[in-house]
Amino acid sequence: MASQGTKRSYEQMETDGERQNATEIRASVGKMIGGIGRFYIQMCTELKLSDYEGRLIQNSLTIERMVLSAFDERRNKYLEEHPSAGKDPKKTGGPIYRRVNGKWMRELILYDKEEIRRIWRQANNGDDATAGLTHMMIWHSNLNDATYQRTRALVRTGMDPRMCSLMQGSTLPRRSGAAGAAVKGVGTMVMELVRMIKRGINDRNFWRGENGRKTRIAYERMCNILKGKFQTAAQKAMMDQVRESRNPGNAEFEDLTFLARSALILRGSVAHKSCLPACVYGPAVASGYDFEREGYSLVGIDPFRLLQNSQVYSLIRPNENPAHKSQLVWMACHSAAFEDLRVLSFIKGTKVLPRGKLSTRGVQIASNENMETMESSTLELRSRYWAIRTRSGGNTNQQRASAGQISIQPTFSVQRNLPFDRTTIMAAFNGNTEGRTSDMRTEIIRMMESARPEDVSFQGRGVFELSDEKAASPIVPSFDMSNEGSYFFGDNAEEYDN
């Protein structure tokens, strides 16, 4: 783990906690998980779902989305002020799938948001429990990260689609708070800032007046979040320049895209947490497990152990491969979309394939898809080993990566060399080191050039047997250095459309 220093740990961010010791953190995270579980059980009762239907990941996603929508204050306010045809701002819903006479049927349900809020609060001892809501947002974000390569979004903001390893959390809503900021990748933060800068260039009043003052505060806050992700002084200094700019424009845009590229080699610290679907927490609570009393951590053995003992089902389209669908969801559960496939294969105990080789589309089923041909199958979400999630980018030494994705962002704290394609990355730096950030740029390029592919990161860190909950005997895996390590390699994943 990167030293926490003055930073709060993510469990504290996750639970809005002030400084807590490890036991208190485990208890408050457990409380959050228990609340999600209780809410899910109650919703299944309301909807009269069978046990099997309640364990269907598509039903879980609909129920999670309903509660997130019920608590989305800004959108609710907007919907009330701008009524649109056929949208009731006070209601929320989605597809629920039921097994009827041996076939899967889709039923569109509609609930009062007020009623959903009441059920959620009741499951969370009367609190709004925003930490639990954020947790579900991060699960949705991790699922998107594993399912889609955001080529269009990258290109629109002047970045290269091969930089997708920097895009963790790119679909997280803005209201996801400190826990959300911690899991956002460098590219995601750059993209958010670039969008602001572009608006400022096109709209003279963007930075002016009372609204402009708020915009400015948001801009500086985002700059500080991004600065905190960088691990070298030169990158941090460049972020200070971007933040202090009187009138952010093209120079800042250039600096930010430069920094994003540099992060492929001088990786930023991005938190990883295993956020599971509500249909995993519900049955665990129903079986009598007391998360608050037992304590829970999002970055240790607990999620692995929970998945070892969970039964989750998914709808499967006619030509999809259930094992591939399982891999997709497994990666999402562990926030591992940008991790090295060699490491993932070792931990999972079966070969993890790149996205383009998977015969599976996303987990969600569109409303126009034919239910007649839908089957369902068990998702295999178990693992051979477990490993500690990392909050750091690993040290800054790398190795060759593949054509589709030119770097990785480690999820697990496991000893290995970190793949990246130096030639491709360095070719993108057209040696432009003039301007006010020239000395920093020169320094950053120097550090990137001296990074050695064969150097090892996370020295001495290994994986653990599932029986080793105290992480007492690390097993340090050895990897084939020459092997392909990137998930979005030469990829044809669908595009994420909101």
Rank of each mutant, 00 (worst) to 15 (best):
P322M: 13
F464C: 07
F412V: 11
M13F: 02
S478M: 05
K103N: 15
D497M: 13
G102R: 08
A401Q: 12
S450K: 05
V312C: 08
K325L: 04
G356S: 13
M331Y: 00
L418D: 05
E81T: 00
L61W: 04
R355G: 10
T215G: 11
M239H: 00
R267P: 04
S457I: 13
W386E: 05
Q20A: 07
T45I: 12
P419Q: 10
R98A: 00
S287R: 15
S413Y: 06
M440S: 03
R441H: 13
H324Y: 10
P354V: 15
I217C: 06
A85G: 15
G30S: 10
R416W: 04
V29L: 10
G288K: 10
L166P: 07
A286K: 07
N142I: 08
I119K: 03
Y97H: 15
Q308K: 15
G394S: 04
E107L: 04
V414F: 05
M137C: 08
G185H: 05
A366T: 10
Y487G: 01
N125P: 05
T45Y: 08
F258S: 09
L133A: 10
M426I: 08
N202D: 10
E292V: 09
E80M: 01
R342T: 06
S274A: 08
D421I: 15
S413W: 11
V183M: 02
E14Y: 00
I425D: 01
I425M: 09
I406E: 06
K214A: 09
Q4M: 11
E469H: 08
K103Y: 03
M13I: 09
Q122C: 15
R156H: 07
L307I: 08
E24I: 14
N101E: 03
A178K: 14
Y10A: 11
T424P: 04
A27C: 00
S482W: 06
C44A: 10
R452L: 04
R19C: 11
R199D: 06
I408V: 12
S3K: 03
N309D: 05
R75M: 10
T147H: 09
A234I: 03
G185I: 01
V67W: 03
N59P: 04
G212H: 05
G295Y: 05
S9V: 12
L259P: 07
V476E: 11
P277A: 12
E252C: 03
S467A: 08
F479I: 15
E494I: 04
V190R: 01
N21A: 03
E244V: 14
G177Y: 09
R150C: 05
R55F: 13
R118N: 10
V242H: 02
H82A: 14
E53A: 14
G394Y: 04
R175Y: 02
V329P: 00
E294K: 01
A284Q: 14
N321I: 15
M447H: 01
R8C: 03
G126A: 15
T390D: 02
E80Y: 06
A178F: 01
V363N: 08
G37I: 10
E252W: 06
Q149S: 07
V414R: 00
T23P: 13
D128Q: 10
A472L: 06
N211D: 13
L315N: 06
P474T: 12
T157K: 01
L315F: 15
S165W: 03
I475V: 10
M238L: 14
E81Y: 15
A471L: 00
A323N: 04
K325R: 09
M1E: 13
S438A: 14
T350L: 15
R384T: 09
F291G: 14
T433N: 15
V329K: 00
E494P: 06
R243W: 06
M440Q: 13
E339Y: 03
A471C: 03
G158I: 09
Q459F: 14
F420R: 00
I201M: 12
N432V: 09
C223H: 09
E81L: 12
R382P: 05
E369P: 01
R441V: 08
E107R: 07
G490T: 05
R436P: 05
W207P: 02
V183C: 02
L108Y: 05
R416T: 09
E465C: 03
E24N: 07
R422F: 11
T423I: 10
R246D: 08
D127C: 02
M374T: 14
K103C: 07
K273H: 07
L276P: 06
G200N: 06
P477V: 14
A237W: 03
A263T: 12
D203F: 05
H82E: 11
K184C: 01
P89E: 02
A387R: 00
D497F: 12
M426T: 12
N417Y: 13
K214N: 09
S376G: 13
F291K: 01
E81C: 02
A181R: 10
R221Q: 08
Y281A: 13
T390A: 09
D145R: 00
D302K: 03
H140E: 08
W207Q: 03
L259A: 04
S297H: 05
I119V: 11
